[in-house]
Design a binder for these strands. Structure first.
Lengths: 236, 236
DNA sequence: ATGTATATACTTGTCGACAAGTATACAAGA
DNA sequence: TCTTGTATACTTGTCGACAAGTATATACAT
């Protein structure tokens, strides 16, 4: 806990959004202590606003509150990340299957092409823009759900995907492995456009494996950001 | 808002759990007004406890808070229910696929048989016990995820499944259509044990369709419990 | 009878103060 | 030096009071 520069934060909702964003984007790192007092001083508001935000962040699994001891940004639970990747693979495989089964392509080719193009420009060159790439990546996968008529499901799963984003921000810091991911996007797109559900399923499975790999090996990582025990849930 | 009989509720967590349970189990119906004042009088606690619980329930989509006007139990969003059923189908199809692909049966036959047996006893006879059947149904589907090594994912999706449960409690009030569901469970079990992923996928798809049907046609329902507009999210 | 302005009884939003539990610094004794 | 007990400075948990917005009932003028 340190620097804060906010001037006139008002509603409790804004405080919650701000904390959520700062945790997701690693301005507050996993394990960091968050002080209610410091925060309500920074936001120039009562402790209740911060407490309410804390309560919600705790509910989402982003904050651990130890009564009378302190509150800390949750460490990243790799088992949970794996679960959510499994979830995404399952949902997007089903979405692709639905797209192929039920609808005609429509503007799907253009949409996917646009997202892929955006990924390329964001990751190309020395001045690569990772946040932009991530957004384009999210867009690509979002298009698949949207075209399967499940745009609202994508929004519903936002809470889970927050964990994915935080993990991604922590582990993927270089564009070196991104070209491979983009190639896989293109292969998935081709399989979808050729209406080959089985192939798309295999490619999606491989894609999520690659994603997991890309995020886990790039650099000797600081293990203090992760829970060690496989069995998530119980931290003392 | 009416009758309350609680005597010595203490922690805010308990209040939250209690409200969550009462909303899920329809003690508070969709659309019911919940008064902070009445509740904190009933729980004999400060309004902050109730407010904090409200904040979390709102975050989960179970409560709508209109500033300075009142708070109301969320209506059921059928589009959202459809989304979550789609989600469950996707996840369980993937789980079954993983079970067939990776592991040997182990005690899976006995577990599934036990859950199915429990469903039969719970739904048989005139004194059918619907809550017991629902628990056994949950158990059946939970076993699939557990045996795919995704028990923690099942827990993670609990927040979404709450909506499913509330909807189920509202719409399924008779055991008439349950035998068909149990038969489908048996068919799914057989497909899994015969390691036929394609068949299991088809059966799961059909099963969730049946579930949707079973819940939607049984009786002329009171539409005041549902959001009308397809586009969820924006209620004035 | 009807439309309008005002008073009033609600609702949720925010705040400050105090209670209670925990960990640490520090002094006193062995 | 080491152990131990106490004071203290934190932390989160809970409460009562007030501010502010909304809807309704009521009195008044037309």
């Amino acid at each position: 806990m340190n620097r804060l520069q906010e001037t006139t934060m008002i509603t409790g909702e804004e405080i919650y959004r701000d904390l959520l964003k700062k945790i997701t984007e690693l301005e507050y790192m996993p394990g960091d202590a968050l002080s209610e007092n410091e925060l309500c001083a920074a936001y120039k508001c009562s402790r209740h606003m911060v407490r309410d935000a804390f309560s919600r962040l705790k509910e989402k699994g982003l904050l651990e509150v130890y009564p009378h001891r302190g509150s800390y940004v949750s460490l990243i639970d790799l088992k949970q990340i794996e679960d959510i990747l499994f979830l995404r693979e399952a949902v997007e495989t089903a979405a692709v299957s639905a797209i192929i089964r039920e609808t005609d392509p429509g503007d799907l080719p253009e949409l996917l092409a646009g997202a892929i193009e955006e990924q390329k420009t964001a990751s190309a060159g020395a001045e690569a823009d990772l946040p932009a790439y991530f957004r384009a990546d999210d867009r690509f996968h979002g298009i698949l759900l949207e075209k399967a008529g499940r745009a609202s499901l994508y929004r519903l799963l936002e809470d889970e995907y927050i964990h994915l984003r935080r993990w991604r921000n922590l582990e993927i810091r270089t564009t070196r492995r991104i070209p491979a991911l983009i190639q896989e996007h293109e292969a998935i797109r081709d399989a979808v456009l050729h209406r080959d559900a089985a192939e798309a399923s295999v490619l999606l499975h491989r894609h999520f494996d690659t994603l997991k790999f890309a995020a886990s090996v790039d650099e000797g990582r600081d293990n203090s950001y992760f829970y060690k025990n496989q069995t998530e849930g119980e931290r003392k």
